[in-house]
């Protein structure tokens, strides 16, 4: 993947597929350049055996073919910077994927366009709620679809006009964020 935001889009789609109603995506950068990515959901969850095998590229729950590369690619992106990945999951409760990255590593994949990742996710699953936060020392970007839904009533988050508003809303916040890695 050319950008970390693409890995995030891909792995967060797993939360959507898991039937999660609430999905949290957080990117927290500290002053030492450590980036922690958390993708948490209240989807169907996985058994300990499945969690163990999910980082294996030749594991997938699909029955049509036998390769699932989303999590292994995220693991590779984290580990090549000296970071790591951790998956906690419980059947019926949900899954949390946490990955850490050393942003100072020469092998760190730039975060890239998180605005497109979030709008793509919301567009693809407008019936779910996403909590997004990207924080670094002195700046943050946030989005809560739950908050938007209170305003929207029964108008879908997936309407092109609403997606356009969300895009501008996030872009504006990123303009004050001072750029991403």
């Amino acid at each position: 993947m050319k950008e970390l935001s693409l890995n995030i889009l891909d792995v967060t789609e797993n939360s959507v597929s898991a039937g999660a109603k609430n999905i949290e995506v957080s990117l927290i950068e500290d002053e030492k350049g450590l980036l922690t990515l958390t993708i948490g959901d209240n989807g169907c969850g996985m058994t300990p055996e499945v969690v163990k095998s999910v980082i294996d590229p030749f594991y997938t729950t699909r029955t049509t073919r036998k390769v699932g590369l989303g999590v292994p690619l995220l693991k590779m992106a984290a580990e090549q910077t000296g970071g790591s990945i951790d998956i906690k999951s419980e059947v019926g409760v949900g899954t949390t994927v946490t990955a850490t990255f050393d942003t100072k590593s020469i092998d760190f994949t730039p975060i890239g366009d998180m605005v497109s990742t979030m709008t793509t996710l919301i567009m693809g699953a407008p019936d779910r709620d996403f909590e997004y936060i990207h924080r670094k020392p002195g700046a943050e970007v946030t989005l809560s679809t739950l908050q938007l839904r209170e305003v929207l009533g029964d108008v879908s988050l997936g309407e092109p006009e609403i997606i356009a508003w969300i895009k501008d809303y996030l872009t504006e916040q990123y303009n004050n964020f001072g750029g991403t890695n």
Partner: peptide, 11 residues
Amino acid sequence: MATCGIAAGAR
């Protein structure tokens, strides 16, 4: 928009 599509530039 699966892994393959995203990696190839679908977004």
